[in-house]
């Protein structure tokens, strides 16, 4: 079935002419949130609506959380969408979708999210043995069930399958097109203005793939091909940190300072006799780095037997 032939339900068209339609587009810096919102704004403009598109530049660009508000209608005053009044939230990354979900209307808001995961470096902060990375534990099925009208699609894998992961945004636009009252050909005409000429065909296929996916009854991909690591890590129950023992052989330590400088948790220091000591035992995660780096084999980390079994 070709999505172009199918008349979509367009739940967010002309419901209440006086009230603008609010679309919140979110993602991670560098993903193309701005491009997606520009396409939508240009399309709404060409369909004769008043449009306001508002975003924040600066710090957000550096891999941080990025959002863009698009509002269109007969008349639009505020450039920002009030919390809880977004008709549609489009997320280019899973955890960002989870972060902004509360902006969605409770009565019939639509949630469209790519299930791909971009795990931020700070999520790997906890180095305690068997610690989990911090990432949104909510699964696509849970969130879709929560919002009622939700689409969690693996747009990045779909785009990779089409030949270039960078057209994931266009896949999402395809899905978005099924809930807005604009003709697919109009979408494609606008998208073509924003993409390099040689990728027109690819973007067309990506758009249709997203549209086809959304008009089919699926709400969650059959197999969520997400970052298996993060998934697994999150799923693992947080075990209690096992005991370990860091010992420094004072006779062998010559105070070279290497362990002090390299300790990720800054728990070692040189004492008055210029010998390394464990100044903050609570902060030690038993990462073994000092043990590995000590040129004089003066540091030993012993784990309790139970942990040895676990590894």
């Amino acid at each position: 079935m070709n999505a172009l032939d199918k008349e979509s339900a367009s739940p967010h068209g002309n419901r209440d002419a006086a009230r603008p339609t609010n679309v919140l587009i979110v993602g991670v810096g560098g993903q193309g949130v701005l491009m997606v919102s520009k396409v939508l704004a240009a399309l709404c403009q060409s369909e004769g609506f008043e449009v306001k598109q508002s975003e924040v530049h600066g710090m957000a660009k550096r891999g941080g959380s990025v959002f863009s508000h698009v509002r269109f209608g007969e008349q639009v005053w505020s450039p920002t969408i009030p919390r809880g009044e977004a008709d549609i939230v489009v997320a280019l990354e899973w955890a960002e979708g989870v972060r902004w979900l509360d902006h969605l209307r409770r009565d019939g808001g639509t949630f469209i999210a790519d299930t791909q995961r971009i795990v931020p470096p700070i999520s790997f902060r906890n180095r305690t043995r068997n610690a989990a990375s911090a990432y949104a534990p909510e699964t696509p099925a849970e969130v879709v069930a929560l919002v009622g009208n939700g689409f969690a699609l693996d747009a990045t894998s779909m785009a990779t399958g089409l030949g270039d992961r960078r057209v994931a945004n266009t896949v999402l636009l395809g899905a978005l097109s099924t809930v807005l009252p604009f003709a697919a050909e109009h979408w494609l005409a606008v998208i073509e203005q924003f993409v390099p000429a040689k990728t027109k065909d690819l973007n067309r296929r990506a758009f249709l793939a997203g549209r086809d996916w959304a008009v089919s009854a699926e709400r969650v991909p059959a197999a969520v091909a997400t970052d298996a690591v993060a998934q697994k890590v999150t799923a693992r129950a947080i075990e209690t940190a096992p005991a370990h023992l860091l010992t420094i052989n004072e006779a062998w330590c010559k105070g070279c300072d290497i362990c002090v400088k390299m300790c990720p948790e800054r728990c070692l220091s040189l004492n008055a006799r210029m010998v390394a000591e464990l100044a903050r035992p609570d902060a030690c995660t038993a990462c073994h780095l000092c043990e590995w780096l000590c040129p004089d084999y003066a540091i030993r980390i012993e784990s309790t037997p139970a942990v040895k079994g676990a590894s």
């Binding site: 959380s65 700070i122 911090a134």
Partner: peptide
């Protein structure tokens, strides 16, 4: 008052590239 959904997104501060 709309009850907020209990969700737990990770912190995502901006980082050096």
């Amino acid at each position: 008052k709309v009850e907020p959904w209990q969700l737990t997104p990770p912190a995502r501060p901006p980082v050096l590239c």
